[in-house]
Amino acid sequence: MTTFKLIINGKTLKGEITIEAVDAAEAEKIFKQYANDNGIDGEWTYDDATKTDTVTE
């Protein structure tokens, strides 16, 4: 398992969460579901060097 981080730069929700996932694709799926569940819809970027997804509304 690898640690992945999501940075949220939303209009109403800001912060970050960290998860353990098998790979980047699994982490992205989990993060996008989390964002959807919390009403966050924005531009996504991924930095492989830091294993960090960022969503900005």
Rank of each mutant, 00 (worst) to 15 (best):
M1G: 05
M1K: 14
M1E: 06
M1P: 05
M1H: 10
M1Y: 10
M1C: 14
T2G: 06
T2N: 07
T2A: 07
T2F: 13
T2I: 13
T2K: 11
T2H: 13
T2D: 04
T3P: 02
T3Y: 11
F4E: 02
F4W: 09
F4Q: 02
F4K: 00
K5V: 12
K5P: 02
K5G: 01
L6C: 12
L6H: 00
L6N: 01
L6A: 01
I7V: 12
I7K: 04
I7F: 04
I8A: 00
I8F: 12
N9H: 09
N9M: 08
N9P: 02
N9T: 05
G10P: 01
G10F: 14
G10W: 11
K11H: 13
K11V: 14
K11Q: 13
T12I: 10
T12H: 14
T12P: 02
L13G: 10
L13P: 02
L13D: 06
L13R: 02
L13F: 15
L13A: 06
L13N: 06
K14P: 04
K14I: 10
K14C: 15
K14G: 04
G15S: 11
E16F: 13
E16Y: 12
I17R: 00
I17T: 00
I17A: 00
I17M: 07
I17C: 15
I17Y: 10
T18F: 12
T18D: 01
I19F: 05
I19S: 00
I19A: 01
I19T: 01
E20Q: 13
E20I: 13
E20P: 01
E20L: 13
E20F: 14
A21C: 14
A21W: 12
A21Y: 10
A21L: 06
A21V: 07
A21P: 01
V22F: 11
V22L: 12
V22N: 09
V22R: 13
V22G: 03
D23S: 13
D23M: 05
D23N: 12
A24G: 06
A24Y: 15
A24T: 03
A24H: 15
A24F: 15
A24P: 09
A25H: 09
A25S: 08
A25K: 10
A25N: 12
A25E: 13
E26K: 01
E26L: 02
A27N: 02
E28R: 15
E28F: 14
E28K: 14
E28G: 08
E28P: 01
K29L: 07
K29Q: 10
K29E: 07
K29H: 07
I30Q: 02
F31E: 00
F31H: 00
F31L: 04
F31T: 01
F31N: 00
F31W: 04
K32P: 01
K32M: 08
Q33P: 01
Q33E: 07
Q33M: 07
Q33K: 12
Y34D: 04
Y34F: 12
Y34T: 01
Y34K: 00
Y34P: 01
Y34A: 00
N36A: 15
N36M: 14
D37I: 10
D37V: 08
N38L: 15
N38K: 07
N38A: 13
N38Q: 11
N38S: 10
N38G: 04
G39N: 10
G39Y: 06
G39C: 11
I40N: 04
I40A: 03
I40G: 02
D41L: 11
D41G: 05
D41I: 14
D41V: 14
G42R: 03
G42W: 10
G42D: 04
E43G: 03
E43A: 08
E43F: 12
W44S: 02
W44H: 02
W44K: 01
W44M: 03
T45D: 04
T45G: 04
T45N: 07
T45L: 09
T45C: 14
Y46R: 08
Y46L: 05
Y46E: 01
Y46K: 03
Y46T: 04
Y46D: 01
D47A: 05
D47Y: 07
D47H: 07
D47C: 14
D47F: 10
D48R: 06
D48E: 13
D48T: 10
D48G: 05
A49V: 11
A49H: 07
A49D: 11
A49I: 11
T50H: 06
T50N: 06
K51C: 14
K51M: 08
T52D: 05
T52I: 08
T52R: 08
T52S: 05
T52L: 06
T52Y: 05
D53G: 15
D53Y: 15
D53K: 15
D53C: 15
D53S: 15
D53T: 15
T54F: 08
T54S: 09
T54Y: 10
T54D: 04
T54H: 07
V55A: 03
V55T: 04
V55P: 08
T56F: 07
T56L: 05
E57R: 00
E57Q: 07
E57C: 11
